[in-house]
Design a binder for these strands. Sequence first.
DNA 1: AGGGGGTTGAGCATTTTTTCACAAACACTC
DNA 2: GAGTGTTTGTGAAAAAATGCTCAACCCCCT
Lengths: 217, 217
Amino acid sequence: MKESVPDVVIQRLPMYAQMLAALKEVGVESVGSRELGAMLRTTPAQVRKDLSYFGRFGKQGMGYDVSQLSSELGRVLGLGREWSVVLVGTGRLGRALLDHKGFLHDDYRMVAAFDKSSRRIGRKLAGLVIQDVSELEDTVRNKGTQIGIVAVPPGEAQQVIDALVRAGAKAILNYAPIVARVPKGVQLRQVIPVHSLQSMTYYLKSMESGRGSEAGC
Amino acid sequence: MKESVPDVVIQRLPMYAQMLAALKEVGVESVGSRELGAMLRTTPAQVRKDLSYFGRFGKQGMGYDVSQLSSELGRVLGLGREWSVVLVGTGRLGRALLDHKGFLHDDYRMVAAFDKSSRRIGRKLAGLVIQDVSELEDTVRNKGTQIGIVAVPPGEAQQVIDALVRAGAKAILNYAPIVARVPKGVQLRQVIPVHSLQSMTYYLKSMESGRGSEAGC
DNA sequence: AGGGGGTTGAGCATTTTTTCACAAACACTC
DNA sequence: GAGTGTTTGTGAAAAAATGCTCAACCCCCT
């Protein structure tokens, strides 16, 4: 239980949580750092060190109780309570996100969706009536929503993000391929698949011309 | 020009490339490491060191020529040639990806799409006829495609990935929330938005109960 | 009840990544 | 063409992350 936990560790926690949930699903009751590490392509030491930031969840000789560790991690990640989420942008991408089965687990609930286009406003989508984006700030403020998902075209993304921030949002998941700007204290995550593709083609190219094997992922 | 470039650096290159493309678009001709760093929330030193792995692109006292650096980075990332890509899974997510304007820049071209469901096979999608997934291996092999995008349900993802690998794919972008397994030498990137949400709620939770400001993005 | 096999937690060593600091390089001015 | 004010590229220092080792611990078996 340290002062401040490194960000890399936080980024790995969801993987542990996901894997533990899967194990629990299958009925596995106990798991060791060796197994967990193997499943997640990392070392036992890494697993143990990461977990040790938050407490002592294992038993020597026995490993970790899947169910217990799963709920501990959930607690650490702030799950187990329901976070409300708003979606801005209901084009193809936004609609896909909203419908995507299991995109939002049980821990996140979409409470409003916004769009600019009058063609879409008023239509229903996954149980929500799409609202005009001009209502965004008031709605977010009133509902006390802290999480916004941005799926609008690049040109409008920054101003949507600004609006979310003004309305009190503290976490933003942005799908627009821009380098967004948020004030300190607001969390931002970018989802830009092209970046993943580009980093992969770097290695593909190197494999062709350079010598065989570069670092994997 | 070092022996091997750290992976963290490779992961950052697409951001530089994106920002430079944006600057070029706007007509900016020259940029310094200070500005570039500020735009990308990093330090000038980081920018310079990252770029120095690949060559000496700047001029002392002047900064970098936007157009030149942009194309140098493109070259490094293996862009400028056209990479063919196949999509497996044409549900909502797959279709959204395919249509998402600019999801695939000019550098990646979708050459085939596959699905299991006979309801979708044979339909046209963004100029492609959706093929039966059983044709995947032959098609990928024949076309020499190296990149696969996987947008199928979690239960089927691993076997689709295996099929892609057998067919010779060397890079896989996986949207299914599983911990996928690929042989060494094959690049894999996971896109799991829920993980981003979870890591953000960790910080939201900490902000509420802990003291104010934790590390930003 | 005691010994054995096996695993965690944590301090320490190693490796990797970031930051610092400054010489070398360039354009512009006088 | 020398001087001045910048900014790069890079080796060295600092910080961070990863990997290693081992004492402490726990269950199980005899």
